[in-house]
């Protein structure tokens, strides 16, 4: 009888201890979930969808020191024109276009701590003539709406795509 009563008391205390442990575990899980939650801010959801497209629209029309806009330089790259873009730092128009786009991206999106990927493809190309530019971003990364810019180049179109990836 005595033993039974002792066991009853022990069971009660154990019950309270289990409740306390469950509450503590629940609290820890809630705190961790709150800390890990990376909410997209209002600013991100406003800025990012426009940023990729605005960037491409601006960059493609930018005039460079060889008096050609970037869009035309990309066309010359696919037309295998070497001479007009040959400078101290560049061998051909593909090189030139790559460096212009890389510099622009580094000095803007790079400085603003954005991760990005830029690709230039014609028709069904899997690998473009101009090297891809990527910083912590690939097709599998979480990303916003990509920006695309079409450059006419008969018989197909050269598509420049800029993706801005989330952290």
């Amino acid at each position: 009888m005595r033993l039974l009563k002792k066991r009853k008391a022990q069971t009660e205390v154990l019950g309270v201890a289990i409740i306390v442990i469950m509450l503590v575990i629940g609290g820890v899980i809630m705190i961790r979930a709150r800390l890990n939650k990376a909410d997209e801010t209002q600013l991100d959801s406003y800025e990012d969808p426009e940023l990729a497209q605005s960037f491409l629209n601006v960059m493609m029309k930018t005039k460079t020191d060889i008096n050609l806009i970037v869009q035309d330089i990309i066309q010359e790259c696919y037309a295998d024109r070497m001479d007009i873009c040959r400078t101290g730092n560049t061998a051909d128009c593909c090189d030139y276009a790559y460096l212009v786009m890389k510099n622009s991206l580094q000095e803007t999106l790079g400085e603003w701590s954005k991760n990005y990927q830029l690709t230039v493809r014609k028709g069904g190309e899997t690998k473009g003539k101009i090297q891809d530019i990527s910083v912590n971003c690939d097709e599998n990364s979480e990303q916003g709406q990509p920006g695309t810019y079409g450059i006419p180049f008969s018989p197909s179109t050269i598509i420049v795509t800029l993706r801005i990836c989330k952290d």
Partner: peptide, 11 residues
Amino acid sequence: RYDPSPNTQNW
């Protein structure tokens, strides 16, 4: 204003 040309590259 930024000039991204490879030979100039300046703000």
